[in-house]
Design a binder for these strands. Structure first.
Lengths: 324, 324
DNA sequence: TCGGCGGCATAACACCGGGTTATGCTGGGC
DNA sequence: GCCCAGCATAACCCGGTGTTATGCCGCCGA
């Protein structure tokens, strides 16, 4: 004769409620067991355990089945609410799993904003109409930081060869950084500036521009330019600094200098008539990376987005698959 | 790498939801564990199991705690509903257990309707204002049947000594029948009828009424009368039959005959002026029983009612505690 | 920059809740 | 009076869900 301690909500788990509800619906333990896919004793014992936890009977056994007691009625009534809520939770989760809902937050560098990102989101939205997206434009270090602090799920970054703080530095945390594409660096100069140097569309020796004025962009891009020129034996005179690609082109067009731009930056703005793009004689490139939290790969919407990034056709932007 | 099968609602038990909710509230696994009274690994593992059932992460681990993912958000949101519902079920059950709510259905024989039953319900209502009662008047066999088929929780019955179908016959089922009180049988006759026989208030030999006309009530009462008279060597002439006590008294008053009534029957109607009640010289009694379903004794409201019946002061009705 | 600390994960283990099959009992209907 | 439907019990088994002990990692403060 165990002392019936005070009732705890912990005594009521959803499994038990499911059983009570099945009995209420079917009117017998045996039928409830059949409906739930259990053996009859399983249900019988579940009820018995419940009853001894509650300290009072939940159902009265009658010759052809079982009737709920008042306590059983209470349980069955609330079971409806509980199970309905659990079912709808399961349904929402199934929608997440089935990519019929979900958010994906993306961070990327400026020149991706007008190329890769819109194409990606367009594609994903077409394939999975339920998914929603957020986008934050950020330079690589900040973009990685957004992933690290869970402000974004996915970051697109770039790194120059030999870059000390390239995105791989992030992999120490739970982050992964995988190279996506190799992006050619292209020299931008006024048509007449390079006129005497070599035929129009052919590669151009970098050091032939040693004496030119230079227009540079973000700090890391400027750093790369300095590094690259040093390897070619000169120090560029960087006279103008701007991140703005249109501004760079206008400056070049105005004859203020030359620039070294990644091909993505050129993909979304038309080249002014008397401005030309020439590959350096010794090819130069940077690499676009995808940075994401390891754990997030199990989030269906994020995994699908990553897959879509991999599947993007980037040939129009001058991107080549990265060999890592 | 287990294949993430489709999500089942069965994967979501209330215990897990409780954990998710605690994490959502506290912001860390450790704090949630403390709040739930678990060890930290218990919660950690609960989450891990949940995640592998869902096939997607539920929370993202951050340096100083954990953040919910979208899936975790869904769970936490529904957990609120589920747990609220479970809590309110527990609360209602606690009210049942605490006798602050509940129904008790009573069946009893007619002469209890105007004596024991109102007193009992009055008493119970005073002690437990939340309890509600239903009452059905029924002769013993029917009253036992109401308990058997769960139309009533408690039946008050009576049985005459040697009664073949007394309530004990019911004990074969899950029913119990316990004797409560011994109820004296009393002879009712007109003052002048017994005048020459013995002093007014003294016991009266039954066979002194052998020649009188008799007024009898319910079938079992009539049966008892026949049995009793046979033991005294005569067969009564039963001229009138009615269950109605007032009618019996009026008939006696009118000189139509004499009657043998249980003391409870006399408790609620005044004896007409020229009608007297006399004990038989050889005392005769019947026994009042309580019949109830074994299992119902664990129902608090019913147990309390039975206790209240035991505690009733029945001296005013001429009932003596039964010796079983 | 290094040690302390807060927080999570993992390992190893124990328990019992909750399932199974086999079987018995009871009450009702043909 | 026998058969059948339905519930209970026994005996057993497994895995979910706790426990403690321990390790790793990232942050913070001296």
């Amino acid at each position: 004769m165990t002392e019936p301690r005070t009732l705890l909500a912990a005594d009521l788990d959803s499994q038990t409620l499911r059983v009570v509800r099945a009995i209420a619906d079917t009117g017998s333990i045996t039928a409830a067991a059949a409906r739930l896919g259990y053996s009859q004793p399983a249900v019988s014992q579940t009820v018995r355990r419940l009853e001894q936890r509650l300290g009072m009977p939940v159902l009265t056994r009658v010759p052809r089945g079982a009737l709920l007691t008042e306590a059983g009625d209470i349980l069955a009534r609330h079971a409806a609410t509980v199970l309905r809520s659990i079912d709808s939770a399961a349904e929402e989760l199934a929608k997440l799993a089935g990519l019929r809902t979900g958010w994906v937050r993306i961070a990327a560098f400026p020149s991706a904003s007008s190329t890769i990102v819109p194409r990606l989101i367009e594609r994903m939205s077409a394939d999975y109409p339920g998914l929603r997206f957020r986008y934050i434009e950020a330079e690589p270090p900040e973009a990685v930081q957004t992933v690290r602090d869970h402000t974004a799920d996915i970051a697109l970054t770039f790194s120059y060869p030999g870059d000390p703080d390239d995105p791989h530095g992030a992999s120490a945390a739970g982050l992964t950084a995988t190279p996506l594409w190799r992006e050619d660096m292209i020299l931008i100069l006024r048509r007449d500036a390079g006129a005497g140097l070599s035929p129009d569309a052919s590669p151009l020796a970098l050091d032939s521009l040693a004496g030119a004025g230079w227009i540079a962009g973000c700090p890391r891009c400027r750093g790369h330019l300095l590094h690259l020129c040093a390897a070619h034996g000169f120090t560029p005179s960087i006279d103008y600094e701007t991140d703005n690609v249109s501004a760079v082109l206008a400056m070049v067009e105005a004859g203020l200098g030359v620039a070294l731009l990644p091909s993505l930056a050129l993909a979304s703005v038309p080249l002014p008539a008397n401005v030309v793009a020439r590959h350096p004689a010794t090819p130069d490139s940077r690499t676009v990376h995808l940075v994401s939290a390891e754990a997030s790969h199990r989030v269906p919407a994020i995994a699908a987005t990553i897959a879509a990034i991999d599947a993007l056709d980037t040939s129009a932007w001058g991107l080549a698959t990265a060999r890592s």
